[in-house]
């Protein structure tokens, strides 16, 4: 398995995606400062009170990150999977004496793991930088507590895995049409819906757990369906 992962990474460069993750991190860092500064811009607006809580600020940032990384995951899946199986490279892939299912599983694992790892690293970096600067110049009047940090990290893991699963679901939809465009559009539509639902989960965690379970089950069904399609595929 590790040999196949190594070969997969050798065949597909991740350099441009690493740059994209770096850009996303910088933009998201800017965004969290912007959200933290909003109540100071208009102190009389009562609706902006939400932005005076670290839980909301960090949670909000995680949800936006989830949307962005879900689309990144779909782009990655398009490049690593849809494009390869839709092109003449499929003949090459199927000429290797390795199970088709195994090759697909490795590809999906690479896409999923890369999405999750990048989102975790990106958001942890944002959290560290933001909390350090908050200890020097405070933008948010809320108090930083250990329990708040632990909860944020746990939620981050949950959102990161969700973005990976959403990438697989988009791939499932896009692969049906063997279309990169369909994969990315599916991801965009799904993240719009998910962001609406997830916004509620900031204040009510059970919703997050329920949605996580549903998304996870759909992604597993997608993986199974993709494996069956690949095994029956003729090139």
């Amino acid at each position: 398995m590790s040999k196949l992962i190594h070969l997969e990474l050798k065949r597909n460069h991740l350099k441009s995606y690493n740059i994209a993750v770096l850009i996303i991190t910088i933009i998201m860092l800017g965004l969290i400062y912007f959200f933290a500064a909003i109540p100071k811009i208009d102190p009389n607006e009562s609706d902006l009170e939400l932005f005076t809580s670290y839980t909301f600020l960090i949670g909000f940032n995680h949800i936006i990150s989830m949307a962005i990384f879900s689309i990144l995951s779909a782009v990655l899946a398009s490049k690593f999977i849809v494009e390869e199986y839709a092109s003449k490279k499929a003949i090459l892939l199927f000429s290797y004496p390795t199970s088709r299912r195994k090759i697909l599983d490795v590809k999906m694992f690479v896409v999923f793991a890369y999405t999750v790892c990048c989102m975790v690293i990106s958001n942890v970096a944002i959290l560290i930088v933001f909390l350090i600067t908050e200890s020097i110049v405070t933008l948010c009047p809320d108090r930083v507590t250990i329990s708040m940090i632990i909860k944020s990290i746990l939620l981050l893991l949950c959102y990161s895995m969700m973005s990976g699963f959403l990438g697989i679901i988009s791939l499932w939809i896009g692969f049906y049409k063997r279309s990169i465009v369909a994969t990315i559009i599916a991801a965009c539509i799904m993240v719009v819906l998910m962001c609406q639902i997830m916004a509620i989960s900031i204040s009510f965690t059970p919703i997050l757990i329920g949605i996580f379970a549903v998304v996870c089950i759909i992604a597993l069904l997608g993986r199974r369906s993709l494996c069956l399609q690949i095994e029956k595929m003729e090139v």
């Binding site: 040999k3 070969l7 050798k10 065949r11 460069h13 092109s87 003449k88 490279k89 003949i91 090459l92 000429s95 290797y96 004496p97 390795t98």
Partner: peptide, 29 residues
Amino acid sequence: LRKTGSLIETPVFYEHLSATENLKMHMEY
């Protein structure tokens, strides 16, 4: 497939890799 070498239709390669790297990758598979 393990016992066969094949060339079907237009040959495709990993364009960013060198000829040697393409062969090395094939051998590993």
